[in-house]
């Protein structure tokens, strides 16, 4: 029998490693097919469509960069939607993080009915955005809502929370805090994994609660804070259900979020190419913000056992 430097070709096909790979790929194939058809395909399609004018009921026409240019030069509503979204993100994300952390610290105490309180604060997070928004429409109702009726009990005058241009964005920000249970659970998990020896050492050194919080708890929580902020910003930029259900973008476009403006262009005005271009701008916005945060993370996020 003669041998050569190369293994016979048939051995590659019959090798255990190759067969293992085939089995592995066979297992992930359904997901890959699903991804290509329902995620990857539409992503590519939306990029291509962003250079076309397509009303759906007529064949697409090549438009070049017109959509991207007109978005920043002539679409006043696009500028409004960016500004509305920016204001929402810049307020709702920090406030929700502070609130979530505060709740997590409280729910990390040994108190009676802890399970109930944890469930109660997390419960709104499992309610769908649409259902939650409808509940809040009623809560904010001028005459029948619990908010104004609660204020009346305290002798305060109610306001027109969803139809007053000055108040409406704040009303949606307050509603967004309803979902604070999600970052709260992450903070709670991080708090429960906190190494106790650090606190014991601090106790021996005579540290107070406040200094322990700032010197131990916060730095040790920084990866969770970073994660929650990244996710919070992504979710906030994509805000859609609340303005869609609660305000329709009004009054006077005061809640015309980027996501809603995109949706209206796609499904109300049938400007699929333009909406696709807007989707890519939204993606670039989120991508840029995320990269920016990762760039800053090295300065303040502390990973135990790792470099800062």
């Amino acid at each position: 029998m003669t041998t050569t430097g190369l293994a016979p070709r048939s051995n590659i096909w019959q090798s255990r490693r190759f067969r293992d790979a085939i089995v592995a790929y066979a297992f992930i194939l359904p997901w890959v097919i699903g991804f290509i058809l329902f995620v990857g395909g539409p992503i590519v399609a939306s990029f291509v469509l962003s250079f076309f004018r397509w009303k759906m009921i007529a064949p697409p026409r090549f438009y070049g960069l017109t959509h991207y240019i007109s978005m920043v030069t002539t679409d006043e509503l696009f500028r409004i939607s960016i500004w509305v979204t920016f204001k929402f993100v810049i307020i709702s994300v920090p406030v929700s993080q502070v609130l979530a952390l505060g709740l997590a610290l409280l729910l990390n105490q040994r108190i009676r009915g802890l399970g109930f309180w944890r469930s109660a604060f997390y419960l709104p997070a499992v309610v769908s955005g649409v259902a939650g928004s409808i509940i809040w429409v009623w809560m904010y109702h001028v005459e029948l809502g619990i908010v104004n009726n609660g204020l009346a009990l305290m002798g305060l005058e109610g306001r027109n929370w969803l139809y007053d241009r000055e108040l409406v964005l704040g009303s949606l920000i307050v509603k967004s805090l309803w979902n604070v249970g999600i970052p709260m659970v992450i903070y709670l998990a991080a708090l429960q994994g906190m190494p106790q020896q650090l606190y014991e050492a601090a106790d021996i050194d005579g540290s107070g609660e406040v200094s322990k919080f700032f010197a131990i708890t916060l730095p040790m929580l920084s990866p969770a804070i970073f994660f929650n902020i990244v996710m919070g910003i992504i979710a906030s930029v994509q805000t859609f259900a609340e303005p869609y259900v609660m305000t329709g973008g009004g009054p006077d476009n005061a809640t015309l979020f980027l996501g809603l403006h995109l949706y209206q262009n796609a499904f109300h005005y049938l400007k699929m190419g333009y909406a696709s271009a807007m989707a890519w701008i939204m993606f670039l916005l989120i991508f840029g913000l995320t990269v920016f945060q990762f760039g800053l993370a090295g300065r303040w996020v502390y990973y135990e056992g790792g470099a800062r």
Partner: peptide, 21 residues
Amino acid sequence: ANEGEALKLIGDALDKVYSGN
């Protein structure tokens, strides 16, 4: 044609008139 987009423009203007702005 393009009724949805037209109504958005008109609707925004009506909003301002009906709200007294």
